[in-house]
């Protein structure tokens, strides 16, 4: 089911002139979702950068039916919304587009509840790895050692592995994705839209001001995350877990780029020294090991 870039719709799903920071990964990701579904969807968006990005009423930069809702509520609102539209004979995808705070922290119960009920939703966790909208505070997915305004000396705890947590909800579809690999992500969104039930996609979306890197490096950082193996693209589809093509070669540890190439471009990891870097690489190995074992388990 490979997709060619020239087959993607070229409609304007995002109206230019948004309130996003230059180089914002969320708009890159959201555009890709809209391309994947050809704009035939509705969006439920909790508090976060994506509630500010569309700009000011009476205009919005989002070209699809959208409802903005309180921080913790989006999976629940979407559950009701999808129930209503299905009842009215509309089978189009209802997409929750939520950040890491909304998903891994404040809205975690609602996310877990909606997944446990296997609501017919596509839930996309657009993860910029901190509360960027309120000024870069640490969230449940902020990685270990990362600077934020509430972890000024680096976060002392591990990030929550949201995709693995969601996998254990026994939902039909769980995947990770990255804004740097649009064709992989778009294929996953399209696949998800063909499956009934709760679909969860964890999208890596690095934020220039929040992670402290140059505006032009958004895609580069996201790509390096995959190339260094710190972000693994995988897909669980109704019983089968596979490593996605862009990550496949990095099963072999020797093919991975040194983690420092990813970290040195980000101000948030400025305090990660050589020893910590070694520990970090060990953690990455452990994560890979888990995923590879799961891929054997879910064959």
């Amino acid at each position: 089911m490979s997709i060619r870039i020239d087959q993607l719709p070229r409609d304007k799903f995002i109206m230019p002139g948004t309130a996003a920071c230059p180089g914002c990964p969320l708009l890159i990701g959201l555009r890709q979702v809209m391309m994947a579904l050809n704009g035939k969807m509705s969006l439920v968006i909790p508090a976060g950068c994506s509630s500010v990005i569309p700009g000011m009423s009476p205009a919005t930069s989002y070209g699809v039916p959208t409802i903005h809702v309180p921080f913790a509520s989006s999976p629940a609102v979407a559950s009701g919304l999808v129930s209503a539209v299905r009842m009215r004979g509309n089978n189009g995808p209802v997409v929750v587009w939520a950040g890491d705070g909304a998903s891994s922290d404040i809205g975690f119960a609602a996310l877990s509840g909606a997944a446990a009920r296997n609501e017919d939703l596509i839930y996309i966790l657009a993860d910029n790895e901190a509360y960027m909208n309120t000024g870069i505070q640490a969230s449940g997915t902020t990685p270990w050692m990362a600077w934020t305004t509430t972890s000024p000396n680096g976060k002392t705890e591990e990030r929550k592995e949201m995709a693995l947590i969601m996998l254990m909800h026994k939902i039909p579809y769980v995947a990770t994705a990255s804004i740097a690999y649009p064709l992989d992500f778009i294929a996953k969104v399209r696949k998800a839209s063909q499956i009934r039930g709760f679909k969860f996609i964890h999208l890596y979306a690095p934020c220039p001001p929040g992670l402290k890197f140059d505006d032009s490096y958004t895609v580069k950082i996201a790509q390096l995350a995959v190339e260094t193996g710190i972000w693994v693209l995988w897909e669980y589809n109704q019983g089968k877990l596979t490593i996605s093509p862009p990550s496949a070669m990095y099963k072999d540890k020797s093919k991975r780029k040194p983690l420092s190439e990813y970290m040195k471009l980000q101000g948030r990891f400025a305090k990660v020294g050589e020893d910590a870097m070694k520990l970090y690489e060990a953690k990455i190995d452990a994560y890979w090991n888990t995923i590879l074992k799961l891929s054997e388990l879910y064959k």
Partner: peptide, 26 residues
Amino acid sequence: AKFIRVESEFAALASVYGASAGGARA
């Protein structure tokens, strides 16, 4: 009707709110 067996009152109101936004009587 669809009965949504939610995990909290917050979600109860959020889900019927979503249902109303989706055009249903909730």
